[in-house]
Design a protein around this nucleic acid. Structure first.
Lengths: 87, 87
DNA sequence: TATCTAATTAGATTATTATCTAAATAGGTG
DNA sequence: CACCTATTTAGATAATAATCTAATTAGATA
């Protein structure tokens, strides 16, 4: 849960999530939507992945990111509904 | 929206929110629940206030914090439901 | 196998955040 | 008015996060 909210704290990462709600996209496609270098985008992806908010699969040379909506929903629901943190 | 998610990124601030769901509490009462100094807690309160997640009123010498649940709900709903950010 | 493409890792720098102690403020109360 | 209590502000330091360029990795293909 901590990792999820840390991931959500940066506007670029929230925008990546919005993009992935439309469907899976490659690291390169996502990176091209922002005025940041690819290594920088890569560290943003890594934080989303660490929080388990995204999954990856490889398709030839490209890495495809997709959103784990359930992880997002669960974290937000816990914050709204429950008394304490899960971790 | 940015300020809300920045506020939510710190575990102490999320715990403050959980506490305030039970009802309004003073700065001192909240501070006593954590092993942090009062000035440190005060900066956490300030971030919650900046995000408009909490309101304050004064009762004699003490400052009473209360949760603005609607602000929290709105931010989380936007993240889940909508395509883009509001700010 | 040499090389090309896509993506990540290394290493450095800058900016931001969290935290502390000490000082200041704002209202009560004797 | 002098002081007491609760809280915040100032100023400093340490820890963390964001970003870049350069180098590396992993797989595909000529």
């Amino acid at each position: 849960m901590n990792a999820v909210f840390e991931a959500l704290s940066h506007p670029v990462r929230r925008k990546i999530i919005q993009q992935l709600k439309k469907g899976p996209q490659s690291a390169g496609e996502l990176a091209d939507m922002f005025e940041l270098t690819k290594p920088t985008m890569s560290t943003h992806f890594a934080k989303l992945k660490k929080a388990n908010l995204v999954s990856t699969k490889r398709d030839k040379n490209t890495i495809i990111y997709s959103l784990n909506m359930s992880i997002l929903e669960r974290a937000l629901a816990e914050l709204i509904d429950f008394g304490g943190e899960k971790n």
